[in-house]
């Protein structure tokens, strides 16, 4: 694909964004968020949007995305931005699940434009895996159909003692809820540090083939708070900058690529 050299940020008009809107396709939404942060509108058509690359007809619109990255790399911010996008354009509320309440809402961008949007996001803070499972398994009871389900920090619910069955259960329940509501699902998780305790995480990964990886490269050149984003077949690799106040910016890597 062609990449033109661009300045770091460029504003996009809301109409242009709306033109690419596919509220139920999480990969799209995330791509849009990323592209919005990137400030560039040319990158949302990577590959074949919404279809997986599996041959034949074992394909589905990619409506669930797992965001993996180290803690503090801005996953919550990305998720929140995506929630705002869906709150604005989606048909139902957004359910935002996190272990702890967001310390601060990632500033800038849409949220400043429309405070009413926040009202359409329901923040829920189940404190344990059990509560989370109960919440997700009774979603058909308690909520009207949301347009997006966001789980921030899934790893915080999966204690090292949790096995792959737990990871599978919560992933399966989330996918099942999303399938029932026909809404998008966006999950963020930090990779567990200990090698032994990642059974649950590996199971979670099996359930989300569409994964967006954020990884840091500590080199002397790059400043702190800089990460690489890899979202194969949905977005080109780019660089994510996190500022101290939580604002996120995305830029293309300096080197050219094809």
């Amino acid at each position: 694909m062609q990449v033109s050299s661009l300045p770091d940020f460029q504003p996009i008009s809301a109409t242009e964004l709306a033109a690419w809107a596919k509220p139920f396709c999480m990969a799209q939404t995330l791509s849009r968020v990323l592209s919005e942060l990137l400030g560039c509108k040319e990158f949302h058509n990577q590959g074949d949007p919404g279809t997986s690359v599996l041959p034949g007809h074992v394909s589905s619109t990619v409506s669930s995305v797992l965001l993996v990255g180290p803690p503090g790399c801005g996953k919550s911010g990305l998720l929140f931005s995506a929630a705002l996008v869906a709150a604005e354009e989606g048909a139902g509320p957004v359910i935002f699940i996190s272990r702890e309440s967001l310390q601060r809402l990632p500033g800038g961008g849409r949220e400043a434009r429309e405070p009413l949007l926040l009202k359409r996001i329901r923040f829920l803070y189940p404190s344990s895996l059990r509560e989370l499972l109960h919440l997700v398994s009774s979603m058909h009871l308690s909520f009207p159909a949301p347009s997006l389900i966001v789980v921030d920090g899934l790893e915080r619910y999966l204690a090292p003692t949790c096995g792959s069955a737990d990871g599978a259960l919560i992933s399966g329940l989330l996918l099942d809820s999303a399938a029932h509501f026909k809404c998008g699902l966006l999950i963020s998780a930090a990779q567990p540090l200990e090698m032994g305790g990642d059974g649950a995480f590996l199971a979670v990964e099996r359930y989300f083939p569409a994964q967006c990886h954020i990884y840091g490269e500590v080199t002397t050149e790059q400043e702190e708070g800089t990460f690489h984003i890899s979202f194969p077949s949905h977005f080109p690799p780019c660089v994510l900058h996190t500022a101290k106040d939580g604002t996120l910016k995305i830029s293309l890597p300096k080197a050219s690529f094809s």
Partner: peptide, 12 residues
């Protein structure tokens, strides 16, 4: 009944 139950119930 399996790993799910045992570890799912672990907080309790």
């Amino acid at each position: 009944s399996g790993g799910k139950k045992s570890t799912g119930g672990q907080p309790l």
